[in-house]
Amino acid sequence: MLDIAIGGVLFGALYALIAVGLNLQYGVTRILNLAYGEILLIGSYITYIFFKDFRINPLLTLIFSGLVTSVLGILIHVITFRRLVLSAASAEELEFRSLFVCFGLILLIQNLLAHIFGVTPIGTPYLMEGVEIFGERFKMNTVVAAILSAVVNAIMYTLLRFTKFGLAMRATAEEPVGAQIIGINILKIHIASFSVGCLTAALAGSMISMIYSNVTPYTGTIYTVIALIILVLGGRGSFIGSIVGGLIIGCAYYAMIRVRASLADPVIYILLIIMLLVRPRGLFGRQ
């Protein structure tokens, strides 16, 4: 029982790390970034470049891959989404059109990765030994990923809660028009949150290639879907929500594998659909 609980929490923490970026991006900018999983893969591949030739510890290159990807995020936003934000008449139209941009980005990033790195699976296996927690044994790297997830979420929380910048972000998320009136440069906030979202995506990508080491250019969609599930479960723009959502999904998946593994996948999605019907704004979402 204990092993499932702790294992589920560790696994859920990784999911929370995957989801936090998408939640930020969608929460603040109202752009549903369907290419999120592909951006996450960019993080994996940057880690891989260093690992492959120089055997550099993936944890050391975390910052670097995060920074590169966040710059990339800024570029993506400035080149593609900025125009949409400026020209879209309503939030609904923005969501609608950005979805189409994301289809293009998915094709673009996926095939660029395949073209540059080839399609053979890559990985940066590291810290694979076991570690003991409360008498149960776990993989070291999942523990590291869970710690990283906690740190990232804590930083994000402080950033949003206690800084001026965070205040501006929250204001933009909740009242875009009002925020503009009181002099917040909405576009800047959008770009910043988009790039921070890409940064955390890259961190999650590095963790994934470290833990599973079976990354190909076509695995991105899985992570997008995971992030979407947690976004819905936790609620738009809520950090607590994405953490709790991640943990719930993680524990539910673990419990399902234990009880009846063959039903684990459908149950997660059916859970999501039920959640959407009962409480569409998520556990912690604001209307």
Partner: peptide, 11 residues
């Protein structure tokens, strides 16, 4: 178990 699952701990 689910196809291509990565989590085997409970199993």
């Amino acid at each position: 178990y689910p196809f291509m699952t990565t989590e085997f701990k409970p199993l």
